[in-house]
Amino acid sequence: MPDPSTPRLRVLVVDDEAKLTELLQLELDVEGYDVDIACDGSSGLVKARSEPSPDLIVLDWNLPDFSGVDICQRIRRSGVTIPILMLTGHDDIADRVMALDAGVDDYLIKPFSIEELMARLRAMQRRAQTFSGGSQGRETVVLTMSDLRIDTSTRDVTRGDRPIQLSVKEYDLLLFLMRADGKVLERAEIMRGVWGDNFYGDDNLLDVYIRYLRQKIEAPELPVLIHTVRGVGFILRDASSQET
């Protein structure tokens, strides 16, 4: 049972399935959340941007007016960083990549158990609190590796004089590798750090994003920066002449 002394978090549920939203509202209320319902993408977008803003968003992929992916992209473009959990029947790797690139924080396949949904929401909130607590008051940080540069205040990435456009998760992955400061990172460690515990062991997803990053930041005439450490994971370092 929730602690009555703890402030209730606000959850926005954007879904047009009446039976599902009624069930979620009941279960979330029992778990100590305040729930707001939006039955289409347009009203969900308005409520996501309103004040006071929700603490978490549960967003269905299939909505009557816009797709959940489109709504997530619009939310992120407006500067809203609220954690978003996508509900969907799509389970292909390409669909996962599409949702994550749009700015989704987690991904839950229908049908799902209420217990798993609650666990995902708690994990998302913990990650959001950790990120917020660690970044508040932090000055602008520019990270560099060889001629690769990340400005964490603006999320700008450049290689030499060339600006590099990255998706949300591509940026998160590159930043995680950069902050390791030359340390070899195990695959499981990267998955937990970038995608959270719920994507633990999803090696295909990691390989997809490593390939995307290499295509964007590497070039034949430039030193190789992302290295594979066989049987272990990956490392970001300026050591193109060394085999790993």
Rank of each mutant, 00 (worst) to 15 (best):
I82D: 05
I84A: 02
M86R: 09
M86G: 04
M86N: 10
L87P: 02
T88H: 00
T88R: 00
T88F: 07
G89C: 09
H90Q: 11
D91N: 12
D92S: 05
A94E: 06
A94D: 10
D95T: 10
V97H: 04
A99V: 01
A102N: 13
V104L: 01
D106Q: 15
D106W: 08
Y107A: 10
Y107T: 12
I109W: 04
I109Y: 02
K110A: 12
F112K: 00
F112E: 03
S113F: 08
E115N: 09
E115I: 01
M118E: 06
A119Y: 13
R120G: 02
L121K: 06
A123F: 07
A123H: 11
Q125M: 15
Q125K: 14
A128T: 02
A128P: 13
T130R: 14
F131W: 03
G133E: 08
G133N: 11
S135A: 04
S135H: 07
E139A: 06
V141Q: 08
V142E: 05
M145G: 09
M145P: 04
D147E: 05
L148N: 07
D151M: 10
D151I: 01
T152W: 00
T154Y: 01
V157I: 00
G160M: 06
R162Q: 12
R162C: 08
P163N: 02
I164K: 12
L166I: 13
K169Y: 08
K169I: 15
K169W: 10
Y171F: 04
L173E: 01
L173I: 05
L174N: 11
F176S: 00
L177C: 04
L177Q: 10
L177D: 04
L177E: 03
R179T: 10
D181R: 15
G182Q: 11
V184N: 06
L185K: 13
E186A: 14
A188S: 13
E189M: 01
E189H: 00
G193Q: 00
G193V: 01
W195Y: 12
W195L: 08
W195K: 05
F199D: 00
Y200F: 13
D203P: 01
N204E: 08
V208A: 11
L213N: 06
L213F: 08
R214Y: 01
K216T: 11
E218M: 13
